Amino acid sequence: MRGWFRLTLGLLAVVLGALWTVQGLGYAGDSVMTGHRIWAVVGPVVVLIGLVTLYFGLRARRGRG
């Protein structure tokens, strides 16, 4: 079970970050976050954190972490 938590958390962060980016840029409607530029900045940061977390989760699954 090594690395599963990091993989799950990383994947969740990537998906949420992408969603927040799309909402911040105004492409997704019907949300209080739509059109607010702060989410267009926060989203990619969360995606980057998620990718780093995925990397370390994969390393743990392979036995190197």
Score class of each variant (00 low, 15 high):
Trp20Gln: 10
Val52Leu: 13
Leu11Thr: 12
Leu7Trp: 03
Gly29Arg: 15
Gly50His: 05
Gly24Ile: 04
Leu54Tyr: 09
Ala28Gly: 10
Gly10Phe: 05
Gly26Asp: 04
Leu25Thr: 05
Gly29Leu: 14
Gly24Trp: 01
Gly26Phe: 07
Leu58Cys: 05
Leu9Tyr: 02
Val47Ala: 01
Phe5His: 15
Gly3Ser: 03
Trp39Lys: 12
Ala40Phe: 00
Leu11Pro: 03
Leu25Ile: 07
Leu54Gly: 08
Arg61Ser: 00
Trp39Asp: 00
Leu16Ile: 08
Gly26Ile: 01
Trp20Asp: 06
Ala28Cys: 07
Thr34Asn: 12
Ala60Trp: 01
Trp39His: 09
Val47Trp: 01
Ala13Thr: 05
Leu11Trp: 07
Leu58Tyr: 04
Met1Ser: 09
Phe56Trp: 12
Phe56Tyr: 15
Leu54Arg: 08
Pro44Arg: 04
Tyr27Leu: 05
Ala28Phe: 14
Leu7Asp: 06
Arg62Tyr: 11
Asp30Phe: 11
Gly3Asp: 01
Val42Cys: 14
Leu19Phe: 14
Met1Val: 11
Arg59Ile: 06
Gly17Met: 04
Thr21Leu: 10
Arg59Trp: 06
Leu54Phe: 12
Val14Gly: 07
Ala18Lys: 09
Leu16Gly: 03
Leu51Glu: 06
Leu25Cys: 06
Leu11Asp: 06
Gly50Trp: 04
Val47Thr: 05
Thr8Val: 15
Val42Pro: 12
Gly43Pro: 02
Ala18Trp: 11
Pro44Val: 05
Leu19Ile: 13
Trp20Asn: 03
His36Ile: 13
Trp4Gln: 11
Gly35Glu: 07
Val14Phe: 12
Trp4Met: 14
Tyr55Ile: 04
Arg37Leu: 15
Ala13Ile: 04
Leu11Lys: 01
Trp39Ser: 07
Val42Met: 14
Ala13Ser: 12
Gly17Lys: 00
Tyr27Pro: 01
Ala18Arg: 07
Val15Glu: 10
Leu51Arg: 04
Val45Trp: 07
Met1Ile: 04
Tyr55Gly: 00
Asp30Tyr: 12
Gly50Asn: 08
Gly43Ala: 03
Gly65Pro: 03
Pro44Gly: 06
Gly63Ser: 02
Gly50Gln: 05
Gly3Glu: 00
Thr34His: 12
Gly43Ile: 00
Leu9Ala: 12
Leu11Asn: 07
Asp30Gly: 08
Val46Phe: 11
Val52Asp: 10
Thr53Pro: 00
Asp30Glu: 06
Gly57Leu: 02
Thr8Ala: 14
Gly17Thr: 05
Met33Leu: 13
Ala13Glu: 06
Leu54Gln: 09
Ser31Met: 11
Leu25Ser: 08
Pro44Gln: 05
Val22Gln: 15
Ala60Lys: 05
Val45Ile: 10
Ala60Met: 11
